[in-house]
Nucleic acid binder design. Sequence first.
DNA 1: GTATAAACTAAGCCATGGCTAAATTTAAGA
DNA 2: TCTTAAATTTAGCCATGGCTTAGTTTATAC
Lengths: 150, 150
Amino acid sequence: MSVDPAKRTAERPLQEPDAQAEAFAVVRQAHQMETTEDYVELIDDLITSQGEARLVEVAERLGISQPSAGKTVARLQREGYVTSEPYRSIFLTEKGKKLADASRERHDVVYQFLLKIGVSDTTAKIDSEGLEHHVSEETLDAFRRIINAR
Amino acid sequence: MSVDPAKRTAERPLQEPDAQAEAFAVVRQAHQMETTEDYVELIDDLITSQGEARLVEVAERLGISQPSAGKTVARLQREGYVTSEPYRSIFLTEKGKKLADASRERHDVVYQFLLKIGVSDTTAKIDSEGLEHHVSEETLDAFRRIINAR
DNA sequence: GTATAAACTAAGCCATGGCTAAATTTAAGA
DNA sequence: TCTTAAATTTAGCCATGGCTTAGTTTATAC
């Protein structure tokens, strides 16, 4: 599968600069949404399964400090994804709920896909967390086809 | 494929907090390496195909300003991935070359895999750029199996 | 050989998202 | 009720990686 370094130039010529720049721009943009998606997805999961989303739990599950989580939640509030009053739990806005649902859908497809192609459950959980933000609709469709196959 | 929201709780219970935190930690760590990998991979490609890697070209292909690219190249130098003297072109150290080769290998596998499952070339190029940093060895092996199948 | 353009560096701005330490508020228990 | 513990916020630190504007160096072309 590996590409012979000596043949690399011929087999994998440089892309057009703009096309390449565009690909990196897409990644950077996805990047900006990653944190937002992870938070709303997690907050939604917490509300569903525990009745409410407390900052302390969000922080614990993200594996970061409470102040760090709080800072990002403040940004999410500024941007209209969540609401919360001081010292109270966190709620999703319509916008936040929509994003959470879409993210979870994507996350689930990636997770199921990984399982389908023989990846272990543990790895599927870890990898899907990272991959979900970088999968286009077209690729997602390809994943769905494979999940549904046979 | 989509999961009925009403059944979500039962079908997709919360993970253990530590396991979930660990997955996010993996993503954050991958994140830290992303920029580094993109740069060394690009620098290696430029050296191979054009004889040298100039900052102006790196910046253009990443779609960012020259000073921004310069700042990151300075970090890469600090961390031992590249060398370069003022106003001169950029070279990879052993460490940088190794990382570039590994990154390209991974990148290629993801790209070939996407093509194999029916994703268009354009999308495969874009998505592989984002996905390559979040694919574990185990998943990569699954991808390789599929590329080699039939 | 010198003028000019291109490449690069320097300085300083910004937002994000980590952190710790300390203050505040809320909730719980005695 | 009152004390205390837990949750949250505030303040301030740091690195990364974007940006612009302005200065410096190098290379080109005349």
